[in-house]
């Protein structure tokens, strides 16, 4: 386990990298622990993620992948103590079928100095998406924000790439890869190996 200084606190850092995960995850962070969960699914299945944070912990969940079949992912974060960070980032491309993501964070009564961010983004191809970001805040002292956007590939970026002589299909592929993998560190992206055949 590595040590990392976060907000001037030396923390035990743990990284969990999962590819094509279909299992439920449950994790209770220790005090002074930093946990990064990276999940890439080439086709999302239904699964649940449950996390519990007590004091002085730092949690990042990076979740990315394609919708190729109907699924529901439930993400449930519980913050019981003080001075925790909870960051959830989701990027998904709905190629076919329907995907639903319920992302709930509960910050307990009387807790102090917690920070919560939920950042959910989806791109629609021939599928559909439903995001449900839920913040349940039972304390007066918390920084909490959530974003949920669902749209299409940005037209300006597609046009720009095409003005360089890149076909629409290749431009979409470039934007898709950047959208899905921008969350992850380079070593995890290499493990995913997405698009290797195309590059070759």
């Amino acid at each position: 386990m590595k040590m990392e200084k976060v907000n001037n606190i030396l923390m035990d850092k743990k990284v969990i990298n999962l590819i094509d995960n279909d299992k439920n995850l449950e994790y209770t962070l220790k005090d002074n622990e930093m946990l990064v969960i990276n999940i890439f699914n080439s086709s999302f299945n239904s699964f649940n993620i449950k996390t519990i944070q007590n004091n002085n912990s730092y949690l990042v969940i990076n979740l990315s992948g394609f919708v190729n079949q109907d699924f529901t992912v439930n993400i449930d974060g519980e913050i019981k103590g003080d001075n925790n960070h909870y960051i959830l980032k989701l990027r998904t491309v709905a190629s076919y079928n329907h995907g639903a993501v319920n992302a709930k964070v509960h910050v307990n009564e009387g807790t102090l100095e917690n920070e919560v961010t939920e950042d959910l983004k989806g791109i629609l191809e021939d599928g559909s998406l439903n995001f449900m970001p839920i913040l349940e805040i039972d304390t007066n002292e918390v920084k909490a924000e959530h974003y949920a956007t669902i749209g299409h590939y940005p037209w300006e970026e597609l046009f720009y790439l095409q003005t360089k002589g890149i076909s629409n299909d290749d431009a979409i592929e470039m934007l898709k890869k950047s959208f899905l993998f921008n969350l992850f560190a380079e070593d995890f992206v290499k493990q995913i190996n997405y698009g290797k055949e195309q590059d070759e």
Binding site: Y160, Q162, T163, G165, L175, S178
Partner: peptide, 27 residues
């Protein structure tokens, strides 16, 4: 558009677009 660019026409626009996650090398 991409066929026009392949014919040899290139536009440098007033405010060139930025693209996160795509490098100049890749483009």
């Amino acid at each position: 558009t991409y066929e026009i660019a392949k014919e040899g026409i290139m536009l440098i626009s007033q405010n060139p677009t930025s693209i996160e996650g795509v490098t100049n090398m890749e483009v």
